[in-house]
Computed example of a mutant assay.
Amino acid sequence: MFKNHMWRLTPAVLLLVFLSGCFGEENLTALDPKGEAAQWIYDNMILSLVIMTFVSVVVFAIFFIIVVKFRRKDGDDELPKQVHGNTAMEITWTVIPVLLLVILFVPTVTGTFDFHVDADPSEHEDSVYINVTGHQYWWQFDYEEGFTAGQEVYIPVGERVIFELNAEDVIHSFWVPALGGKIDNIPGVSNALWLEAKEPGVYLGKCAELCGPSHALMDFKVIALERDDYDAWVEDMTAVEAEETAANAEAGYEVFQENSCIACHAVGGQGMATGPTLTNFGDRQKFAGVYDIDDDEKLAQWIKDPQSLKQGNNMPAHPDISDEDMADLIDYLRSLQVRPEGADY
């Protein structure tokens, strides 16, 4: 009885598994391209599907015609007419697949050369150039202007942005499905790709290479701004001084210093950058890549016991911070903003 029920459920289960790839966070899809590279991937995928559908329809149509028309009939014991060695048929079923492969080959090769990019910054002096370093399990973005951002990377709309890809520990893979393809971050090797956003927005990114127990939580965001807004953000990021960040939350700043947070997290160009830079922490939508920035309880848990939220990460635990100090520390972290009041981004 159980086997019978399982047999009935199998198609529904398979359908759910198939459809599970269609759902998820907004913009985390390659089926809604928002950039030139993503559009090329999407167009080639559709072209491949059209060709495969055409081939499948023709093959199955011929198959069913043959099954119906030439099926063995009662009393018919004669051998069918043999057609092996038919030159016209052999040429036909050789030429058609070759033509279909050429149709796929040409855009694939031309696009591959178009989207290839050199990792040498001197080759891209007129482009925004960002060095991306993958860590377990967060992303570091170093800008040519001399500042660092973590977990969220800002780019100008309508411009090709060059990303130089490196890794600190193991192999990661940088992927923004709505904007382009993926390329690996490999320790000791510099790869590169370019992305271009056609319109302002927030585009979700993922690590696409299994890199440890918290690989699935290694998210980041690409925030595309109009050029004027982007320039304003860059100016704000370069202008921040660490001492100024404590103006609205001095008690929290003291907790931050006392617990040696600045030994791992740089603020306004001061401190170490072994962990994500916190200069614009209050502007972010997520912390640890995946948790809502407004969730005080989760943020406190992250500071006290980071392994409980992201297994295998390198952030040290701070279980001894009191509730009062934790509230002050969270207030300070939320005060770390560079976005001008009233800005659209």
Rank of each mutant, 00 (worst) to 15 (best):
E244I: 03
K206W: 15
I96R: 02
Q301E: 11
E25C: 04
Y129C: 05
V117F: 03
A288I: 07
I303H: 05
L14D: 06
C261R: 09
A327W: 10
D294N: 13
D142R: 14
S20D: 04
C22S: 14
Y291C: 03
T277K: 09
A239N: 10
K304H: 09
I96S: 07
P319N: 07
I186L: 01
W138F: 14
R284I: 08
S127L: 07
A266R: 08
I96C: 10
E168I: 01
F141H: 12
K304V: 03
Q136F: 05
E164Y: 06
T108W: 14
D236I: 00
A149F: 01
E324Q: 13
E235G: 07
N27F: 08
A149K: 06
N185I: 06
E125G: 02
T53Y: 05
T108C: 03
Q257T: 10
D32P: 06
D229T: 04
S127H: 11
A263G: 12
L217A: 11
I262H: 14
M218N: 15
W194D: 08
D292Q: 10
A343W: 04
L104T: 02
L79A: 12
V106H: 02
L79N: 09
A167L: 02
N313Y: 04
A327T: 14
S56M: 11
D283A: 04
L47F: 03
V234A: 05
A246Y: 07
V106S: 00
G312T: 03
P177Y: 01
I183R: 15
V128G: 00
N259W: 13
I46H: 05
Y129Q: 10
E25S: 13
G158V: 01
F141E: 09
K221E: 13
W175N: 13
M1C: 12
G85E: 02
I321T: 11
D126T: 00
N259P: 06
L299D: 03
Y332V: 05
K69Y: 06
Q285V: 14
T87G: 10
C211M: 06
Q140E: 15
E324S: 15
V128Y: 02
A224L: 00
Y129V: 10
H172V: 01
G342K: 07
F60W: 08
N4V: 14
L225T: 02
E199Q: 13
V338P: 05
I223A: 01
V55H: 01
